[in-house]
Design a protein around this nucleic acid. Structure first.
Length: 493
DNA sequence: AGCACA
């Protein structure tokens, strides 16, 4: 029972193939360690960021002589060992091996395990992954899959050096936004090493690739692969059309309710379902149409435009990967208009609402929609100098063809081309005159005395219902963009 | 600047 336990000091230590390094810069990386030590031999293991200050480390050489050569070298060198300009003190460790101190994911290998956080599998295509990781060397193979951890990819490089380079550069970083669909707000990469050394890719498919074998057959059962988004030459995922639109609402100063959205989006066809939700602090909504072409028309017309005057509640639209929403038939955040009872319920409940929120009665909408539409045209357009960011496609002001006369645009003939006048008459809300040279959609909102459950453009014949102000089409969205004298029965005050 | 982890 001697009271040994005294620390061993530099000149009394027995050599070990494990070296203890001190005074390292804070959170010194393994690569910096390897850089420093590898001239002396093969490094078989490391342990970084040891100690309260995370400025110590251990390095294990394959052979004792290699460790001795490093200690000897710096013992007699006029240049001290340095990392990032800091002198590093090196001595033999009092242990002879680095115990299995690493989680498996920290043991370098040529295959990376990449967890892509905050996205769903369809958001990041395998081609985008390939593009991003190819920056560090030839990517042999990629396999993607979804686990509890989220969307993951195994990425095989030639060697662990290349893999490490990719990991060091990309770990805890994000795939550039421009490579991602618009609705993806964050795309955080968490990268570790896989224990795999060679992935077994059986097919080229939407979820796996073998770039070393381009003649590998395409998975015949990967029907999904065909549905997978096409990818342009830049690797950016092209939008895949869908009957369901994803709307992100920017600058949401005013409440955007299911009813407001229903009104706005019903201008283009039957809205089947709506769901509103929050994602990353932003309000988003899914709007389901019966078919892709209707959704496409809505998207085309509404993208970048504002529900309310003044740049409020700006819409950004993309196609959802959903095709059929599973929503509560009636809630404050969702609506299923395909359920008849729900429509009734909707009509009842909404008509029972205590008036229109003040925000909808945006005073600015008055001048814009009450006779100023023509005279103020210059002023309005003057708000957008150069016209580069013209809030509304000019063709919308002069032509109706975009939404009406193009055959096949509305397979559901929600807009019978000839029905525009009657429709416009019925749908024209107070003060909505046809040539509205503005970007907003607000008459949809400024006159909310509509029947939310019954889209105007779905009503048979579009006949006017006396006493009931029907609203279906925002004035600047309306197909009948051209002025048709005499067609307006409503000139709301 | 002075020895980890289980």
């Amino acid at each position: 029972m001697s009271t040994s336990g005294q620390p061993q000091f530099r000149y009394t230590q027995t050599p070990s193939k494990v070296l203890h390094l001190r005074n390292l810069p804070w959170e010194c990386t393994e690569e910096e360690l390897i850089e420093l030590c590898k001239p002396f031999g093969k490094i078989v293991n490391t342990k970084c960021n040891v100690g309260a200050n995370r400025n110590q480390a251990f390095v294990e050489f394959a052979d004792l002589n290699q460790a001795i050569s490093m200690v000897s070298y710096y013992a007699s060198s006029s240049e001290p060992a340095q990392v990032r300009g800091k002198t590093v003190y090196i001595q033999y460790s009092n242990r002879h091996e680095i115990v299995n101190n690493k989680s498996p994911g920290d043991i370098p290998g040529n295959v990376l395990l990449v967890t892509i956080e905050g996205v769903e599998a369809g958001d990041v295509s395998i081609d985008v992954i390939h593009l991003v990781f190819s920056a560090f060397g030839f990517v042999h193979k990629i396999a993607t899959f979804e686990k509890a951890a989220g969307f993951q990819a195994l990425i095989q490089f030639s060697d662990s050096e290349t893999a490490s380079a990719a990991r060091n550069a990309l770990n805890e970083r994000s795939i550039p936004r421009y490579l991602l669909p618009e609705h993806v707000n964050s795309c955080h990469l968490r990268i570790s090493y896989s224990a795999h050394t060679d992935l077994n890719i059986k097919f080229q498919s939407h979820r796996s690739r073998d770039y070393t074998n381009p003649y590998l057959p395409v998975n015949p059962t990967a029907i999904e692969g065909i549905v997978q988004p096409a990818v342009g030459p830049d690797g950016k995922k092209k939008e895949l059309e869908s009957n369901v639109l994803l709307a992100s609402i920017e600058n949401m100063q005013y409440a955007v309710t299911v009813d407001v959205l229903h009104t706005v989006f019903s201008a283009f066809g039957t809205v089947q379902k709506i769901a509103i939700f929050e994602k990353n602090g932003q309000t988003q909504a899914l709007v389901q149409y019966p078919d892709v072409s209707t959704a496409a028309a809505a998207r085309e017309a509404l993208e970048g435009h504002c529900i309310y005057d003044g740049g409020y509640c700006k819409l950004h639209l993309s196609y959802s990967r959903h095709t059929d929403l599973n929503v509560k038939a009636y809630s404050d955040k969702s609506r299923d208009y395909t359920i008849p009872d729900a429509s009734l319920l909707t009509a009842q409940q909404v008509s029972g609402l205590p008036g229109v929120p003040g925000a909808w009665q945006n005073p600015q909408a008055g001048p814009l929609y009450h006779g100023n539409n023509f005279t103020s045209g210059g002023a309005v357009s003057g708000q957008y100098p150069g016209g580069q960011a013209a809030p509304w496609d000019p063709t919308m002001q002069s032509g109706r063809q975009q939404y009406v006369s193009v055959p096949g645009t509305y397979p559901g003939q929600n807009f019978a081309a000839s029905s525009v006048p009657g429709y416009a008459t019925a749908a024209g809300p107070a003060g909505s005159s046809p040539l509205t040279p503005t970007s907003q959609i607000p008459s949809a909102v400024t006159s909310m005395g509509f029947s939310p459950g019954v889209p105007a453009n779905v009503r048979p014949g579009g006949a006017s219902s006396p006493g009931q102000l029907q609203l279906g089409v925002p004035p600047n969205v309306r197909p009948g963009g051209a002025s048709r004298p005499g067609q307006h029965t409503y000139y709301g005050q």
